[in-house]
């Protein structure tokens, strides 16, 4: 691989653009596609179509081309995790999610919780959850987890999440508090199918007790939904 090309690819990745690197395994030619434009190399229409297909499927694979077999390597922007509540569990969940490849944003309007000291490596948003969620605009590569236990903060975030394509939505709380949450969201106009998208109580049942263990159970459930569904 050529260093110039690698530099262009790394720039595209840090700008969170959709990139694909194509390497022909026999001729050793290479090409770089960023946001649908060919920045380097030559691609015929059929290969361009294959690249688009790989980007859509979010999957790197070998492709047969007129110039022989080529490897199409996909670099989509990272998955996103939006956490509502800069609480103790979030201090464990945020680094776990970063390690797993997510870009993490934490929403909490309460200044005492959302401090850089407690969250050195994540993007902190101190707006109210409804505004913050609208601005972050969750898509189908986004997970949303509410952890405040406070309906005033959690509910508006869940309201926006349910109107998005977020692939995973979860809310912390016991079965009883979840039942109350279901009623409130129904009152906001969400039907049963929509509300059933919420994983509540959040996380798989591993008997988690400590904040880190609860974060682990949520991370496991999020991964399972991403990879299996």
């Amino acid at each position: 691989m050529n260093l110039d090309l690698l530099q262009q690819l790394n720039e595209a990745r840090s700008a969170k653009r959709r990139a694909a690197m194509v390497r022909w395994l026999e001729t050793h030619d290479e090409a770089l596609v960023v946001d649908g434009s060919v920045l380097a190399g030559d691609l015929d229409d059929a290969t361009m179509a294959a690249v688009a297909d790989c980007l859509r499927a979010d999957r790197s694979r070998m492709v047969e081309t007129a110039a022989g077999p080529a490897f199409v390597q996909i670099f989509n922007p990272p998955l996103r995790l939006i956490v509502v509540g800069a609480v103790h569990i979030t201090q464990a969940l945020a680094p776990m999610a970063s390690l797993t490849g997510y870009a993490v944003s934490v929403i909490d309007p309460r200044g005492a919780f959302a401090t850089k000291d407690r969250f050195p490596e994540v993007s902190l948003v101190d707006d109210w959850p409804d505004e913050a969620m609208e601005a972050l605009a969750p898509d189908r590569r986004t997970a949303v987890v509410t952890l405040t236990h406070d309906p005033k903060l959690d509910d508006p975030a869940l309201d926006v999440a349910l109107r998005s394509e977020a692939f995973y939505i979860a809310a912390l709380g016991s079965r009883r508090t979840h039942a109350g949450r279901v009623e409130r969201l129904a009152a906001l106009g969400h039907d049963e199918t929509a509300i059933a998208r919420i994983h509540g109580p959040a996380g798989i049942d591993i008997g988690a007790v400590s904040p880190a263990e609860i974060a682990l159970s949520v991370m496991a459930e999020m991964t399972s939904v991403l990879r299996r569904e």
Partner: peptide, 13 residues
């Protein structure tokens, strides 16, 4: 933290 392989490649080069 897990290092990003392609960033490491660029830095080393």
């Amino acid at each position: 933290m897990v290092e990003d392989v392609l960033s490491v490649a660029q830095a080393w080069k």
